[in-house]
Design a protein around this nucleic acid. Structure first.
Length: 594
DNA sequence: GCCGTTTTCGGCCCGACTGTTTTCAGTCG
């Protein structure tokens, strides 16, 4: 039976909700919810786990759930799931998507108001609220009735689009506000919190923490920042909606308690849950205020996060790792990875210049020498020229070979005059970003590839191919010429615009490992590709990465930090990244196939 | 129903907010 991860996660959430209504053991409910989260965030298809009899390896899936899921795949049903679902009307489930309505309220509303139609239940509820049929229900009242109406409106808005920001957009907004906040003399520290601090690929709201002895003054100043609406203003913080529609939350704390607050609001939620669970085993209870000794009730406070983690007997855990992917266990064992840092990066080898080789895709905007100058500013040892291949539809094979030959000569000449003129020391490698055609062939012949040192092979078309086909396609491209050294933006995703390809990543990774191919971590903020979760998986497969900016202008070269963040979120160390190598070592790795 | 610094049994995160309630239940992050 075909069943996606999302579908099964949704089913498990429904079972959890049903259990809640039925008064099941609350830990069983938590277990189902946990399993749902875990399955939703898997980077491989559940079916692959099932095929390989590895369901039990999924965190949160034990013998019991693995049995039910197995039954689903074999027969299309699970007797157990069906029997639970049969006990309750299906019209409760859509209501759970409305903010403020959980399982208990949904059940009460559905039964008392006799809302039976799953398809229309939200409109039916809205109708009932307007007719004041909700206020009289036990446990509800006037306010609940109004709240339901406004929350249905919010739900409908949310349905239209989930509008998240890329990292530089969020960084820009945060930087401006932070500069504004710093004007208050009593401000001791300012940090971003939440997903922005953890450098998640897309950001919803912006959260900011301030340490100060004078919270009142800081909050009063903050709400004077240009805004559309003050959503909330209280003694410990405030929330604004900006003119661009973005929400910004401020949290204020005294310096002595700042560490616990920073830790708490950086999250992730799952990291905090796991951390509190660990703390409890030591008789300690964690909160945003500090660490409480359960036996005595005494609360210790912490000025820094380091001190907070150390008090639990753990080393500092970098924010990028706080996703409950085993970082606490690693911290306990003392085996946290020493994450790669932007300063480790020695070169950027996916750059497009304005040299017109009549390419298949867009040219860069700046010259080779402009990129060399920028590389020198960034203290790189080397760059890689990776223009798109010449268009294959507009040229003959002979023309393409001639173009590639001319290109090589052009860059050689440009480089030598730049070097003489500036005496700067940046080296370059001559590469090419070559399309992986729908059948897995490269868009450049072996003859044309004589004129490059190495190839970044990338998918730029046919993104919706079936998994088996697209997997074979990539493997074929990797094996087609030994000059292929890097797999460019492997999934092809564009954040909030296009899903990536649906490949069997395990198989792609095996092929990359066999041929010592590096996976690109593309730093361009709309891509961030390979995604961090796949970086994490690929490292386990023993792969290495090349962090590139895919710059089409010199300014884009400054986006390297975002690719480094992806690498860090995937637990990458310096040794996992090929472009942390010195020029000589990098080049000898790159030229292995030449 | 899951899972393990030691635990294969006995635990399982914490606090805020809201609205309905006279001490709490439900929901959320």
């Amino acid at each position: 039976m075909k069943m996606t991860n999302l579908e099964l996660a949704e089913l498990l959430r429904r079972i959890a909700a049903a259990y809640e209504i039925l008064g099941e053991n609350r830990f069983r409910i938590i277990a189902y919810t946990r399993a749902a989260d875990s399955i939703e965030h898997l980077t491989s298809e559940l079916k692959d786990y099932w095929d390989n009899k590895r369901l039990r390896e999924i965190p949160g899936v034990g013998d019991m759930l693995a049995g039910h899921i197995d039954e689903m795949f074999r027969t299309g049903h699970s007797k157990h799931f069906d029997s639970v679902m049969a006990k309750l009307p299906t019209s409760i489930y859509p209501l759970l998507l409305v903010p403020g309505i959980g399982p208990k309220k949904a059940y009460k509303l559905v039964t008392v108001l006799k809302l039976k139609n799953e398809k229309t239940v939200i409109s039916d509820l809205e109708h009932a609220a307007k007719k004041h049929k909700i206020a009289p229900i036990e446990g509800f009242g006037e306010k609940s009735e109004e709240l339901i109406l406004s929350n249905i409106a919010i739900y409908r808005k949310g349905q239209i689009k989930e509008n998240r920001m890329t990292l530089p957009v969020a960084d820009g907004i945060a930087a401006d506000i932070i500069a504004f906040i710093r004007r208050v003399p009593s401000v001791k520290r300012v940090d971003v919190l939440g997903s922005l601090r953890r450098q998640v690929a897309t950001i919803g709201d912006i959260d900011i923490a301030v340490a100060t002895a004078n919270p009142k003054e800081v909050i009063a100043h903050f709400v004077a920042y240009p805004h559309q609406e003050i959503i909330e203003e209280g003694p410990t913080g405030a929330s604004l909606r900006l003119h661009n529609g973005r929400q910004v939350d401020l949290r204020v704390q005294k310096s002595g308690r700042y560490g616990a607050m920073l830790q708490y609001f950086t999250g992730s939620k799952n990291h905090n849950i796991a951390l509190r669970s660990f703390a409890l085993s030591k008789g300690l209870s964690l909160s945003e205020y500090g660490i409480k000794h359960v036996r005595t009730g005494k609360i210790d406070t912490y000025a820094t996060e380091e001190a907070f983690y150390n008090a639990l007997g753990l080393p500092y855990i970098p924010p990028e790792l706080r996703e409950d992917k085993g970082e606490i266990q690693a911290a306990i064992r003392g085996s946290l990875p020493k994450l790669v840092d932007i300063k480790d990066v020695m070169g950027d080898v996916h750059l497009h210049t304005d040299y017109n080789l009549e390419p298949s895709h867009d040219l860069g905007m700046d010259s080779f020498t402009a990129l060399l100058d920028r590389a020198a500013e960034l203290h790189y040892e080397y760059i890689g020229l990776s223009d798109h291949n010449p268009s294959i539809t507009n040229h003959s094979e002979k023309q393409i070979v001639a173009i590639m030959k001319r290109r090589k000569e052009y860059y050689e000449q440009q480089y030598s005059s730049w070097e003489k003129k500036t005496h700067k020391r940046v080296k370059y490698v001559l590469m090419c970003e070559v399309d992986i055609l729908p059948d897995g062939k490269l868009a450049l012949s072996d003859a044309a590839l004589e004129y490059v040192d190495a190839v970044i092979a990338s998918v730029h078309s046919s993104f919706t191919q079936e998994r088996r086909i697209v997997t074979k396609r990539i493997v074929r491209a990797i094996e087609s010429n030994p000059k292929v050294r890097i797999l460019g933006h492997p999934t092809g995703r564009l954040l909030s615009k296009r899903e990536g390809i649906d490949a069997d990543w395990g198989e792609v990774f095996r092929a990359c490992k066999t041929h010592d191919i590096a996976l690109e971590i593309n730093s361009y903020p709309d891509r961030l590709d390979l995604p961090d979760t796949l970086v994490f998986d690929a490292i386990k497969s023993g792969l290495r990465f090349c962090i590139n900016t895919d710059s089409h202008a010199a300014d884009h070269m400054n986006l390297m930090q975002y690719g480094v963040s992806v690498a860090r979120r995937g637990w990458a160390t310096k040794d996992d990244i090929v472009n942390t190598l010195s020029y000589n070592k990098f080049k000898s790795w790159l030229l292995k196939g030449a």
